[in-house]
Simulated assay, not measured.
Amino acid sequence: MSTEWTVRAITRAMLPILLVLTLVEVGSGLVLGRFETQLLQYPTLLALVPVTIGTAGNLGSILAARLSTAFHLGTLSFDPRDENLAGNALATFALAVSIFPIVGVGAWGLTALVSGAQLEPQTVVAISLASGIALAVLAIAVTVAVTYVAYRFRLDPDDVVIPIVTNTCDVLGVVVLFATVQLLL
């Protein structure tokens, strides 16, 4: 792994990644724009968007930080039987299963308080939980893959993994949330 910590080295590693991620975020906004009518029809979905993508990005970031630390300590292998890797992935999944129902209840409660909820609370919780489970699986896959790629290209995972994971989870969050809405509404 490169241990060169100069402005030039960091810029050389990060600038191309950040430029690509900027385009990815624009794509996320375009996808979100396609669902504007549905968002205005169901304000609860509008409340779910930022919390869902933020929570998915946070889950991926937590896992990325844990994998990066394990990588630097030399305790991480990319063997599917690695208990450290599997344990961190399982903890991320368990956190998603426990937090996304709370996100759904919170979004429903907020919109019920402000504008009168138009969706049943169990529907909102189901949408939030199903989206959260799918996003947890995707965040785990993306985080492990990006950490592995950083390792293979001798990049510091601390520099590249979290920005890639959070931006990817933003896009995936929007897509998964609205795919779930299409299935459950």
Rank of each mutant, 00 (worst) to 15 (best):
I62S: 03
F100T: 13
V125L: 09
E83I: 04
E36N: 10
A86E: 11
S128P: 02
S77V: 09
L110G: 10
F71A: 12
L63G: 07
A56C: 04
L119P: 03
D79Y: 07
T143S: 03
S98E: 06
L113W: 14
F93W: 10
V137H: 00
G60H: 02
L135K: 02
A70W: 03
A47N: 02
V51Y: 03
L119R: 05
G106A: 15
L39T: 05
G104S: 10
L45A: 10
T143Q: 06
A86P: 00
L46Y: 10
W108V: 09
G33H: 11
G109M: 10
A89T: 12
G87N: 08
L119A: 13
G33C: 05
L48W: 01
D82T: 05
T92E: 02
S128Q: 07
L45G: 11
A64R: 00
G106R: 00
L39P: 02
A65K: 00
N58G: 13
V103Q: 04
G106D: 02
L40F: 10
I99M: 11
T52W: 00
L45Y: 09
V49N: 09
R34W: 05
T37D: 14
L46H: 08
F100Y: 15
G60N: 04
V97A: 14
S128G: 11
P101W: 06
L59C: 08
D79R: 07
T111Q: 14
A91F: 01
A112R: 06
L39W: 03
V49H: 07
R66P: 03
V103T: 09
T75G: 01
F100C: 04
T37K: 10
A112H: 09
S68L: 05
I133H: 00
G33I: 06
V103N: 06
L135H: 04
Q41T: 13
P50K: 13
A65N: 13
L119I: 12
Q41K: 13
F35Q: 12
A64W: 02
L46I: 03
P50H: 12
T37P: 00
A112V: 00
I140M: 08
P80V: 12
A130L: 15
D82Y: 05
V142C: 06
A139V: 08
L67Y: 03
F100K: 07
L90Y: 07
V51R: 06
G104I: 07
R66A: 15
L85T: 12
R66C: 07
A134G: 15
I140Q: 04
T111E: 15
A96D: 08
L67M: 08
I133E: 02
F100A: 02
V144F: 04
A139I: 11
T147S: 15
I62N: 08
V137I: 15
L138N: 01
T44V: 15
S128E: 11
A65E: 04
V124T: 14
S77G: 12
A107I: 07
L138K: 01
F93Q: 02
S61P: 01
R34L: 14
S128N: 09
A117K: 04
V142L: 15
A94E: 11
L46E: 12
A112L: 09
L85S: 07
L73T: 13
G60V: 10
